[in-house]
Amino acid sequence: MQTAKKSNVLKQLRIEKLGFSVLTILSIATVIPIIAVVIYIIYLGAPAISWEFVSAMPSEGMRAGGIWPAIVGTFYLTIGTALFSVPLGIAAAIYLSEYAPMNKVTQSIRLAIINLAGIPSVVYGLFGLGLFVIFLNFGTSILSASLTLSIMTLPVIISTTEEALRAVPQSFRVVSVSLGATKWQTIWRLVLPQAIPGILTGVVLGLERAAGETAPILFTGAAFFLPRLPNSPLDATMALPYHLFVISTQVPGMPIQIQYGTVLVLLVFVLIMDIIVTMIRSHARAKRQW
């Protein structure tokens, strides 16, 4: 009896060990391709990186010189996207999580938002072309492209923000209201500060995707080549992902290290966004008491 029990426990332990090993191998297996891709990009792209590459205008039909206008363009587009999608997305999430009645309409809105996240980005591009470029007459511009990217980014920001708001315990809200807080005071002073780390995660996920997209800006704001930097939101702009597309498919005799150098710069751009947000987030977490 005693020994039977013991061997049973041992057997379970063995199974558990086996399970863990399988999981470990699987997770390593998923990370390997990502690491391989990054190493490959660094290997091929690093030789192209120089001060000139990240600070000069392209020359000789983009086969030489730098990619400065594309870096600036992606920066503008990301800022523009953030300007529209972050306040709108957070406001929508606050409405959905705190104010909207629990009914079928709200449920279907939520479902629609989740489904929007699955729409191919080129569809957003065409939509932006129709609405912003043509109908609202913003032309092919940073404004049109930012608005298009915002619409694509909104679902991600809304869903993650709503989740972050819901994760704040209901009891905090009840206590706050019992102390004479209005609903808005409770949200502003208590719920939002608690949710900030989660919201930031959603924001950066959405914006990083926006920074790397080609299709939505293809018809709405991206320029093949511009001899100068854009100087108003109504100008078209070069952008890193579109520039990459162009030099990989449209320009014969393109040196390969310029292509991979461009990829590397885009990667670093996204990495910098990650680092900034991680810093803000850990600062917010440190200030947060729970």
């Binding site: 019992s178 004479g180 208590l190 008491q289």
Partner: peptide
């Protein structure tokens, strides 16, 4: 109701401090 809640305070069964100092 805000004035009412200031006048009629409540303490709950579990200690529920807010996530503040």
């Amino acid at each position: 109701v805000i004035a009412l809640r200031r006048k009629v305070g409540i303490v709950f069964s579990r200690p529920l401090p807010l996530p503040l100092s």
